[in-house]
Design a protein around this nucleic acid. Sequence first.
DNA 1: ATTTATTATCGTAATATTGCAATGTGAAAA
DNA 2: TTTTCACATTGCAATATTACGATAATAAAT
Lengths: 108, 108
Amino acid sequence: MGITKSDQFTDHQNKMANILKALAHPARIAIVEYLLSVDSCICGDIVNELPLAQPTVSQHLKELKNAGIIKGTIEGKGICYCVNDDIITEIMSYFNTINKQLNFKKCC
Amino acid sequence: MGITKSDQFTDHQNKMANILKALAHPARIAIVEYLLSVDSCICGDIVNELPLAQPTVSQHLKELKNAGIIKGTIEGKGICYCVNDDIITEIMSYFNTINKQLNFKKCC
DNA sequence: ATTTATTATCGTAATATTGCAATGTGAAAA
DNA sequence: TTTTCACATTGCAATATTACGATAATAAAT
């Protein structure tokens, strides 16, 4: 059907799935990596860095914002973007938990 | 179009996107968490643990296997599953790199 | 006020994903 | 060898995603 049965899973499972989904596209990975590649806010020029049309980039930025992965601040004519470190910490702590549980498994 | 322009991005960006895509669904998150919840291999009964029909679960398991996130070993009549720790390590190291880069940014 | 630059939104086409009933497959048990 | 059990595959319907042209919206610059 293309429709996910979200109500059958826990809030946390849905939350993690949504966060990871926001990053589950090479363009959005590229955006995050580009934002990190410069030692300050990126204002404008994200569109020029990506091999995609402006509306497409705008859509990807919107998804990243909705998932809380990046923040955008209006700066005069354009917008300054940066990665939200809180959510990166949250992702790391999730995989850290997974990793800890893995260490206790003697398996396969 | 629904088609990703994968050839426009680096191999590593595509690889990370694919790994995260495999986890970007609550059912697949639930499968991984269930596999970790027991201190040994899970043989059988994954279908009974999930609120989805057997073909749907089978499909999700296939995607997790293709992305290298779980491994399945044929065990007589059924199959034993477990999480592949190598890929978890890979994910963690990716987000660790991101996090390190974030620490050098004074931003927004 | 008009122009210019930057980002957002709308509409739409192409493709992907999700979910399941029906059916197939392969191995053990009877 | 027939049945049974566990899982895979096929086929299909419903919905989601990706991408972009066209067009709007907003704010600075002229």
